[in-house]
Simulated assay, not measured.
Amino acid sequence: MTKLKQLIQVITRAHIYIQTHNYPDQDALATAYGLQFLLESQDINSTICYSGQIDKYNTLNMVELLKISPLNMEEVTFTKEDEVILVDSQQGNVNVKSFEGRKIACIDHHPKQDTKGYLFYDIRSEIGACSTIIGEYFMENKLKPSKEVATALLYGIKLDTDNLTKRVSVHDVEMFAYLFKNADLKILKKLESSSLRKADLNAYQEAMRNLRIYGRVGIARIGDDCSEAIIGSISDFLLSLSEVDVTLVYSYRVGGLKFSIRSEAGIIDAGKIIKEALTDLGDGGGHATMAAGFIPNLNTSQEINQAASLVEQRVLSIINKVRKDIFLMDEL
């Protein structure tokens, strides 16, 4: 039995909700959009929903050009009987707001968390993009995606694997080739040519002004109220410096500190580092090469500065310990 058929078996209602992580990116929305199309082929209606906002320019373009219709959860009234499928996220993560409704299923490519409560889950951390998993559902069930869905999924894979160069698996490459044949390449080109707004450049300027390098770790605070997308983009940008192989970038937003961490050092697991660094402060996690975290409820400048300083110290301390342990092992 295919994964899609297993999922269909646990759905009992004629309408379900597909929930992404907060502040959804292209891969999350593409995954939700593809799943919505698949469910419609099985006569199940669905609504894509999210918390926070869609705050990256090319993500907004993607929603408009590909006719995706996500709803902010503030626009939705949930009941206890509603059924929810989580995509590109997992229950209990700090970047997934919990609402009424039964979380019956989860489709994700992040490290597996607690799966209790799901009636179905397909969580594969070895996959580079969640869009790849949905692409496989189309292929294994011999269902052809629409041009818009194929374009969205292809774009999700491109973005989450950095054009098939990071965290990429054989499955990602296979699905990229499969979706490429059905995608609208003109729309794809439009999406790739519009990723920044003029206002975003201020954050890059702050990053260059505030960048500090400790060993091979680059750390920068990039001002306040930066979007999650820009925080991540700047973290990637700073990683291109020859002097660093780990970056920590953060901004104060929505009542707390949002962190993005990137690692090109094979021994440094970004997800584990940020999770440990935020112990008793907030929560974080992600992949070995890219992860994020958040500390909520910081209301004064003193609280913000103290928390930022503590996280910086912890990250550097953890990284130094990992490198020292590896060095000692090599000496044995």
Rank of each mutant, 00 (worst) to 15 (best):
T2F: 03
T2D: 10
L4Y: 08
K5M: 09
Q9G: 05
I11P: 05
T12R: 08
H15Y: 10
Y17T: 04
I18T: 10
Q19C: 08
Q19S: 09
H21P: 08
Y23H: 11
P24C: 02
D27Y: 14
L29K: 02
A30R: 04
A32N: 10
L35A: 06
Q36F: 00
Q36P: 06
Q36N: 10
E40N: 11
S41D: 11
Q42F: 13
I44N: 00
I48G: 04
I48P: 04
Y50H: 07
Q53R: 10
T59Q: 02
N61D: 12
M62G: 05
V63P: 07
E64K: 14
L66W: 02
S69E: 12
N72C: 06
E74H: 12
E74L: 10
E75V: 06
V76P: 10
T77Y: 12
D82K: 09
E83Y: 01
L86W: 00
V94P: 08
N95Q: 11
S98R: 14
S98C: 10
G101P: 04
I107K: 13
H110R: 04
H110N: 01
P111C: 02
K112M: 12
Q113P: 02
Q113H: 11
T115H: 02
G117S: 13
Y118D: 03
Y118P: 00
R124T: 11
S131Y: 02
I134L: 15
Y137F: 15
F138I: 01
K144M: 07
K144I: 13
P145I: 00
S146P: 08
K147P: 09
V149N: 04
V149Y: 06
T151Y: 04
L153H: 01
Y155K: 13
Y155R: 12
D160M: 14
D162Q: 15
L164P: 07
H171G: 05
E174S: 14
F176A: 11
L179W: 07
F180M: 09
F180G: 04
D184E: 12
L185W: 09
L188D: 04
K190D: 14
L191H: 13
S193T: 15
S195T: 15
D200T: 12
L201P: 13
N202V: 13
M208A: 09
Y214G: 04
G218N: 08
R221K: 14
D224N: 15
C226Y: 06
S227M: 09
A229M: 02
A229F: 13
I231M: 13
I231K: 03
S233C: 06
I234G: 00
D236Y: 12
E243W: 09
V244T: 12
T247H: 06
T247L: 02
V249P: 00
V249C: 03
Y250R: 04
G256Q: 06
K258P: 03
F259S: 01
S260C: 05
S260A: 15
R262F: 13
S263I: 03
E264S: 14
A265L: 12
G266L: 05
I268E: 00
I273W: 01
I274P: 00
K275G: 03
D283I: 00
G285I: 01
M290F: 08
I295H: 00
P296D: 01
P296Y: 02
N297S: 13
Q302W: 01
A308T: 02
E312M: 06
E312S: 00
E312W: 03
V315H: 06
S317W: 07
I319M: 05
K321R: 12
F327M: 11
L328H: 11
M329E: 12
L332K: 10
